[in-house]
Design a protein around this nucleic acid. Structure first.
Lengths: 210, 210
DNA sequence: GTTTATGGATACTGCTACTATCCATCACAG
DNA sequence: CTGTGATGGATAGTAGCAGTATCCATAAAC
């Protein structure tokens, strides 16, 4: 198919497709002549993947590029592909908490990891975010939320178990990587939406009259 | 305190504080003379609140403004304040799925809501996101993830229960609203971080050699 | 009484994610 | 075989967001 059809089916404007081609998010079509190329279903799939990450999961375009480079690599270990995805979806945050709030939060988070038996790399991007968030909640006098950190962690393990189980059904290693990454990235969007809907439902019941 | 001290304690640059003042995120200091104002702990707290929402929860400044306007209102019902927060943290997404994928996803989501007994407003921002995400996952051939939607929803209820329990301990209605909003907004950051750490830990165990 | 800081207004900047334009082909209808 | 519209590739321009920078008249601190 030509670019116009790709655009029509995917709903992505032609100039945007050209932009993704320029940025190497989308591989070039097969050239049939110096200025004619044809695209196939892999391009369509890739384009949909890009839009899902950009529109739904709010991943920056540069991050999508990193994720896709990982997926495209035939040699990169899955764990590293996942690491790329984690890195791409976790914004780098500057340290904003005072150093003693930061230290207290670090201690608490390390204890949590130890008690849960989670072993993570010391510079995992999410670790910093977690520490800063705990520190912020404390500083904002929301210690009660922090006190439930362990319950949160326990509930989170439920998700992880679901996802591992879901992914076990995929046998092709190629699809496996894409499944794991989509589970990680779009899973976040899914969970966030569900949580807000659950909140809204509860909130309507409890606080419509306060 | 003067603006320089507010800046030093909070770690927010003076021009940025002025920007927040311009945008009415931060109430003006009390004028002691035509070009001198003094700020107090409420300003410091508000500033920290803004930074937590902007830096950690990635809420757009305009969204922070809406959230704070809600919190500041003495008359707005809590449910509406929560609604503002939901609206502020859920990006408006254009419809990107084809209409039959959209319809199928809508049906599935409605069934989920019915089976869980969640009653939500038909134009809740998270509802659209959820539908589009389900549609995207299907289109991307990740039906296995979608099939676990109900398990996700069940796990999400755990969070909501934790948060309702946590918030019950707050009795002042003023603090209550701030607690609920922070629990909603920063809770998302907290959960996302925990989930990534849990994933990383599992991933290291399972897929370092694949 | 000079140096430094402040409030308030206005203008400017850097970044991201596109859009728009241009042009030399190329495909295809007539 | 010629005219019309689409295409690939390059370059330039744009909108929105979140700050930064500058200016100025005044006020505070030494």
């Amino acid at each position: 198919m030509r670019i116009a059809e790709l655009s029509r089916i995917s709903g992505v404007p032609v100039p945007t497709i050209k932009y993704y081609l320029r940025e190497n998010l989308l591989p070039p079509g097969e050239l049939t002549s110096p200025n004619q190329a044809s695209y196939d279903d892999t391009h369509l799939h890739r384009l949909r993947l890009i839009r899902a990450l950009v529109d739904l999961a709010q991943v920056p375009v540069a991050g999508v590029k990193d994720i896709l480079e990982g997926l495209d690599s035939p040699t990169m270990p899955l764990h590293d592909k996942i690491g790329r995805a984690h890195y791409a979806i976790t914004p780098q945050r500057q340290l904003t908490s005072t150093s003693d709030a930061h230290d207290a939060a670090t201690t608490q988070v390390q204890e949590l990891l130890a008690s849960r038996g989670w072993s993570v790399h010391a510079d995992a991007p999410a670790l910093n975010t977690l520490i800063e968030t705990v520190a912020a909640l404390r500083t904002l006098r929301q210690d009660h939320l922090v006190s439930f950190l362990d319950s949160y962690a326990a509930a989170v393990e439920t998700f992880t178990e679901i996802e591992v189980a879901a992914v076990e059904t995929r046998r092709s290693p190629d699809q496996l990587a894409e499944s794991v990454i989509l589970g990680t990235v779009l899973g976040e969007t899914l969970i966030a939406s569900l949580r807000l809907l659950s909140h809204e439902s509860i909130s309507a019941r409890r606080w419509t009259s306060s």
